[in-house]
Simulated assay, not measured.
Amino acid sequence: MKIIQLEYFVAVVNYNSFTKAANYLHISQPSLTTTIKKMEEDLGYDLLIRTTKDIKITEKGIQFYHYAQDLIQHYHQTLEKMHDLNMSHAPKIKLSILESTNQWISQIISNHRRYNQDQTYYVAEVHDQNKILEQLLNFENHIAITNEKIEHENIESIKLYEESYVLLTPENVFNKRETKAVAHYPLIVPMKGSQVRKHIDEYFNRMNVHPNIVIEVSRFEAATNYVHKGMGYAIIPQVYYQSFNTRNLEIVTIKPKIKRAIYINYLKKRKHPKRVLSLINQCIDFWKFRE
């Protein structure tokens, strides 16, 4: 197999189009199509699934894509890896999640693995929206959970649920489970740059009040620890209150409410294995029956 063939394949994946890739490579589309088909015949497995509407890349095609990029520069060092793609074991399912979703994600993965006992998973917390998008587009992750909809033509972004932000307090601090003067309390909030902090700042800007922020943290776990120490009250997503760290604490309803939506995201053009699709559907169904 020649380097130029690998460059042809990488171009088709990058452009998600034989026509655009052919124009970029300055060759005819039939010639490009023939080259890709010949590569698949030589390898013994499909790299791409073609339909009348679009192109989807297979799991083995994704792995080949990553190797092909290296092969263009290091052909002789990675040629053997290219043929190792024809493996039989189930690929690892990779997810990026939010800290606040750990509790329910763990339930779903536990149930999913009950029916797929040889399946392995890679779960990482990622909160940077740009990084999440990059990982999906580069086939690094199968699934991403976000607290904002991803607006991209190649990403399917489905809303799972809405939740309110609440005030996390020690027990028996308030007689009623709601307050209208949140800004005046000593608040523990996420650091600037996070999506949660953006939601909170926008809320107080709309209310035209200056919040009494005493501590800024990078994780809800840290915020919860400071509440346990009596150093202030944390603004957290309501679902996070289900976590182990919030034992012996209470939540107070914030009025007017601060809300956010949680989305599940995946790459449209990727030929996902049935197990990945099953996991996606389990996430959707988990929240569908809780509305």
Score class of each variant (00 low, 15 high):
M39C: 07
K255F: 14
Q5F: 01
T246D: 07
Q69E: 14
L25R: 02
Y165W: 09
H74T: 06
N111D: 10
I262F: 10
I132A: 04
E125F: 05
E80L: 11
L160C: 08
L43A: 11
L160Q: 08
S243Y: 13
E40I: 02
L137H: 02
V189L: 07
E148H: 08
D46F: 02
T51M: 07
Y203A: 03
Y24I: 01
K60L: 06
H152N: 12
K56P: 05
F286K: 00
Q135H: 08
Y226H: 13
P273H: 03
E171A: 09
Q282K: 06
Y241M: 08
F18Y: 15
K94G: 09
E250M: 10
N14S: 10
N16P: 00
F9Y: 15
P211S: 06
M207A: 15
E140H: 11
K94M: 09
T169H: 02
D285H: 11
F286S: 01
H142T: 07
N147Q: 12
A183G: 07
Q103G: 07
D70I: 04
Y121S: 01
I188K: 01
H83E: 10
F139G: 03
Y121V: 00
L137M: 11
G230N: 07
I27H: 04
Y67R: 11
N208K: 13
Y8I: 03
I105A: 00
V227C: 05
Y185L: 15
Y185K: 06
P237E: 02
I200K: 05
N212S: 10
S157T: 09
I4D: 10
T58W: 00
I200D: 03
V173N: 01
E40L: 03
I236S: 05
N14R: 13
P190N: 02
T179Q: 07
I97H: 00
D201E: 14
I264K: 00
G44H: 00
E156H: 05
I3A: 09
I264W: 01
E163T: 12
S218E: 15
P256N: 13
A223C: 07
K274R: 08
Q117M: 09
E291N: 11
H210W: 06
H74L: 11
H228Y: 14
K288D: 12
I36K: 02
Q77M: 12
Y203F: 15
Q77S: 12
S106F: 02
V239Q: 09
T52F: 03
K274S: 13
N23A: 09
I57L: 14
Y263D: 00
M1S: 11
I3C: 10
A261F: 07
R206S: 11
E125P: 03
S100C: 11
S100N: 06
T101N: 07
Q107M: 09
N138H: 10
F286P: 00
T246W: 06
I93S: 00
Q129D: 10
L32R: 01
V12K: 01
A11H: 04
Y203M: 03
N245Y: 14
E178V: 06
P186G: 10
A234S: 10
R270D: 03
L168D: 04
L71Q: 06
I145R: 01
A124E: 15
S164A: 13
Q73V: 10
D42S: 12
I108G: 01
M231A: 12
K149Q: 14
M82T: 14
K20E: 15
I262M: 05
Y67A: 09
K192S: 15
I4E: 15
S278G: 08
H199P: 01
G232P: 05
I132L: 11
T224L: 05
S31G: 05
K268D: 10
I200S: 04
H272P: 04
